[in-house]
Design a protein around this nucleic acid. Structure first.
Lengths: 156, 156
DNA sequence: ATTAATTTTAAGCATAATGCTCAATCGAGA
DNA sequence: TCTCGATTGAGCATTATGCTTAAAATTAAT
């Protein structure tokens, strides 16, 4: 897999700024030929650097305004078998295996604090989960974005 | 803002399963008229439930295979002024204000552990940051996805 | 049960994007 | 200077898009 060059980064940045932009619009904005943009995008996708787009659904707009990060401690023996039941809880929208005091980190949405309490109890009922630690997200200062990363590559 | 009905959820699910799907393809797959899908999608976007798509760039494919979650404790007085310098660090790809023992949670990518050390030091140099706690992500069991949430709504 | 309102469906149409191919041109490096 | 890879420009058939209009179907209310 090749590394990104500056042109790749510029194309990805333009796409980040306007994900709806067509190939034609990108080429126009960047002052490139349509074929060039089309070829680079194709290669970026083939190389796995540009994954499928995602249509972003806002959980808050779905009625889940509460976002929490729940650290879960898992008893040694069970290991992987705890993940599946956790993922079956619909409100768990992301699950990471981590180092540190916890073993799993779950990103959880909820309708309100009572709902969050219910979900926390669900998590504690999962076999192998011995402890949980809930952190509530008060503000998403910067939602997930790789823009700053790309900017470094584009400046060369 | 209206709540999602089952049809909305089904459309969003189909879009989640295949984000590249055209309106025509969605209508075909769901057995609906193109106009119906087009109108529902338009309304979902107008209501803010369906945000702009995002082209997903994999940080690992960009040369940042290490993912860490860094909890930052902030001294009382400074508050918001710490956020800006933190966001200027390119490797910070997400920043949340949280309750709990930390005050900020930064999602950080790095080229390797040494790079992560460098970034941690950068964070500690930010005025107002008094303590940091780094957790390394070993595995993304379930990347961010609202699919499970939507499935609940679609089943009615 | 009948009426009213909303939603879905169907068709048409102009414009634009897409995926593709081919050949010419450009640029950097051997 | 020669060569290889990337970029460019053009063309072309197919398809999606955004939009409008009107009929049919569904739902809610009286």
């Amino acid at each position: 897999m090749r590394n990104l060059d500056a042109l790749d980064a510029r194309i990805l940045l333009a796409l980040d700024a306007d994900p709806r932009a067509t190939t034609v619009a990108l080429a126009d904005r960047l002052g490139l030929a349509r074929n060039t943009v089309q070829a680079r995008l194709k290669r970026l996708e083939e190389d796995g650097q540009l994954r499928e787009p995602s249509r972003r659904v806002d959980p808050a707009a779905l009625g889940y305004p509460l976002l929490a990060l729940i650290t879960l401690s898992i008893s040694q023996r069970v290991g992987q078998s705890t993940r599946e039941p956790i993922l079956r809880i619909p409100e768990v929208i992301e699950l990471l295996v981590t180092t540190g005091d916890g073993d799993l980190l779950a990103r959880v949405v909820a309708k309100d604090t009572e709902d969050l309490h219910r979900i926390t109890n669900l998590l504690l009922e999962v076999p192998g989960v011995v402890r949980s630690n809930t952190t509530i997200v008060l503000l998403e200062v910067q939602p997930f974005s790789v823009r700053s990363l790309l900017e470094g590559h584009a400046g060369s």
